[in-house]
């Protein structure tokens, strides 16, 4: 197995990818506007959300069927549950920490090419989805077209998954596999940056 060599290359590439992208405090800025576009832009303007969503897609693609489609189905459903908690004002401790950890853990899963049983992957992704949903649910702007905003929000999240899946399909080739694992490492490092307050 070339796992260790791949991992070393992946980590090195990840550092090269992540260092130039570090910038101060940019998590969960939201878009502040309503309607479909506002909802669509909401997750896109939260880099911590973006990297975790892409990681879900990457990991799904890495695991192959049925995870490749099961994880992107599980995530929005559970995320909506978390969103309900956020909307109703039910407190959830450590939401931002949970989101940062989601990027770290999901990134590491990709970087390490982890292949747990499907139910473990689904539970892990679902657990993190609650944090993401809660954060966004609590930030839903008042006075918006709720349906259009929610649809935009969920579609953007789904498209981020699809982006991860599309990129993750590179793992079918040896060189692509290294690239995908490197991307996972970069996501884990980004999560570390969010957790430490650098990002």
């Amino acid at each position: 197995m070339t796992t260790h060599r791949e991992l070393a290359i992946a980590v090195a590439t990840a550092f090269l990818l992540i260092v130039p992208t570090c910038s101060p405090a940019f998590a969960h800025t939201g878009s502040g506007s309503g309607g479909f576009v506002g909802g669509f832009l909401h997750p896109v303007f939260g880099p911590d959300h973006v990297v975790a969503m892409v990681a879900v897609g990457l990991w799904g693609a890495f695991l192959g069927p049925p995870a490749i489609w099961l994880l992107p189905i599980v995530f929005p459903l559970v995320m909506a549950g978390g969103g309900v908690l956020g909307i109703l004002g039910v407190p959830l401790p450590g939401v931002e920490i949970g989101i940062a950890i989601s990027a770290i853990v999901l990134g590491l899963m990709v970087a390490l090419a982890a292949r747990p049983p499907l139910w473990v992957a689904a539970v892990l992704v679902g657990a993190f989805a609650i944090f993401h949903g809660h954060a966004h649910g609590a930030e839903l702007p008042p006075g918006t077209d709720a349906v259009a905003f929610s649809v935009g929000f969920v579609v953007a999240t789904g498209l981020l998954h699809l982006t991860g899946i599309a990129f993750g399909l590179l793992a079918r080739w040896p060189a692509g596999r290294v690239t995908v694992r490197a991307a996972g490492g970069a996501i884990a490092l980004a999560g570390l940056a969010f957790l430490s307050g650098i990002g």
């Binding site: 489609w69 929005p76 969103g83 929000f153 969920v154």
Partner: peptide
């Protein structure tokens, strides 16, 4: 099925908001 999950998630969020 993915579309179905998006619809369910959107509807749940809106109902909670209402």
């Amino acid at each position: 099925r993915v579309l179905g999950s998006w619809i369910a998630a959107s509807a749940l969020l809106v109902l909670a908001l209402r």
